[in-house]
C-alpha cells in the first residue's frame, strides 16, 4: 500500500500491523532522545486547506520524531489564496520532491484526487465529510491499549454523524477489526446512506449506553451546518449530550472518547470531560505514535 486514503482500504492484517507498530513506537516518547533516524532525508509536506491544530501538529511532530524534513503549507497566506488549484499546488510539491503529502481539505475526495497527481505517498488527514483515517486508527489504538482488545467491543458513536469524517472512518475500521459499532444521533444528523454502513443505528442514547464498552462523542459541526438540524442546543444536549448521570449508567470500565475539539456543555459535560474515564488527552498522545507508525510504514522501505 502506498497511500492512506480510507480506513476501508485496510485489511485486518494491515490495520493490526499499524497498531502494533504504533505500540512499539509509543516508547520513543519516553526516551531521553525522542527521535529515530528512520526517515532521515525524506520530506513530508503538510498541506492543510482547513484549519487544524491537533492533527497538523501531531503529524508534524510524528514526522520530526522520525527525522523527516517537514514543510507546513497552509491555504492561508500561500499561493492557494491567490487562486491556485489543488492540482497545480500538487504539481509544485511534486517538483520539489515531496516523499509524503499529508492533506486536509474541505472537499470529500481531495486526497484521492491528489494521489493520482503525485508520486509520493498521500496521507488523508481529513477530506470534507468523508474520512479521517489516522483519527480512527488512533481511536482504535486507544481502545486497544485501554481495554486490551478490539474483537467484540461494543462502541457507540454519538452525535453529528452527518458531518463527521471521524464516524465513517471509525465504522469501517472498527468493523474490520471485529468491534460492533452503533451510531446514535437524531435522524436529521444521520447521512441518508447510513443503512449501507456496516453498523447499527439508534436514535436513543439511553438504551445504547448501558451496553457500550466505549462511547465516542462527536462535536456538532456548526460550521458545516447551513440549516437547522435540531430545535435548540439545549434540546440536543438533553437528548444526546453525555453528562455525569448518563456516565454513571454505563458499565464500570467503559471509556468515553472524543476526537476533539470538545464543546463542553454541548455534547459532553465538563464533569465527564474531566473524568479519568475520558481519554481525550490520551488520544492526542497516542495520535503522535500512531502517525509515526503510518509514516514509517508508508515512507520507509522500497
Amino acid at each position: 500500500m502506498r497511500h492512506l486514503l480510507s480506513t476501508g482500504d485496510l485489511s485486518r492484517d494491515e490495520a493490526t500491523l499499524i497498531l502494533d507498530t504504533a505500540t512499539e513506537l509509543a516508547q520513543v516518547g519516553d526516551r531521553s532522545v525522542k527521535k529515530l533516524p528512520t526517515l532521515r532525508g525524506r520530506t513530508v509536506v503538510n498541506l492543510f486547506y482547513e484549519d487544524s491544530t491537533r492533527t497538523r501538529t501531531s503529524f508534524e511532530l510524528a514526522a520530526k520524531r522520525l527525522s523527516a524534513d517537514v514543510i507546513n503549507f497552509s491555504a492561508k497566506g500561500s499561493s492557494v489564496s491567490k487562486g491556485e488549484s489543488l492540482k497545480d499546488t500538487a504539481l509544485t510539491l511534486q517538483a520539489m520532491g515531496a516523499d509524503g503529502v499529508v492533506i486536509r481539505h474541505s472537499a470529500s475526495g481531495a486526497a484521492h484526487r491528489l494521489a493520482n497527481w503525485v508520486d509520493g505517498s498521500v496521507l488523508n488527514a481529513g477530506d470534507g465529510t468523508h474520512e479521517h483515517p489516522t483519527q480512527a486508527l488512533l481511536d482504535a489504538f486507544t481502545m486497544r491499549s485501554r481495554l486490551g482488545r478490539l474483537e467484540g467491543l461494543r462502541v457507540a458513536v454519538v452525535g453529528d454523524i452527518l458531518h463527521s469524517r471521524v464516524a465513517r472512518s471509525n465504522v469501517l475500521l472498527l468493523t474490520t477489526l471485529g468491534a460492533h459499532v452503533t451510531l446514535v444521533a437524531p435522524p436529521t444528523l444521520l447521512p441518508v446512506s447510513v443503512h449501507t454502513w456496516p453498523c447499527e443505528v439508534s436514535y436513543d442514547l439511553d438504551t445504547v449506553l448501558p451496553k457500550a464498552d466505549v462511547v465516542m462523542m462527536l462535536r456538532v459541526q456548526a460550521e458545516r451546518m447551513h440549516e437547522s438540524f435540531f430545535p435548540s442546543t439545549r434540546e440536543y444536549s438533553r437528548n444526546y449530550g453525555l453528562d455525569a448521570e448518563r456516565l454513571a449508567r454505563m458499565p464500570e470500565d467503559a471509556i468515553v472518547m472524543h476526537p476533539g475539539p470538545m464543546v463542553r456543555g454541548m455534547e459532553i459535560s465538563a464533569e465527564v470531560a474531566d473524568s479519568p474515564r475520558c481519554t481525550v488527552t490520551e488520544q492526542v498522545a497516542n495520535g503522535v505514535s500512531l502517525r509515526m507508525a503510518v509514516l514509517y510504514l508508508l515512507l520507509s522501505g522500497s
Partner: peptide, 8 residues
Amino acid sequence: RSSPVRAL
C-alpha cells in the same frame, strides 16, 4: 530504503 518495510 532498499528492502520492503519491516515490522518492528
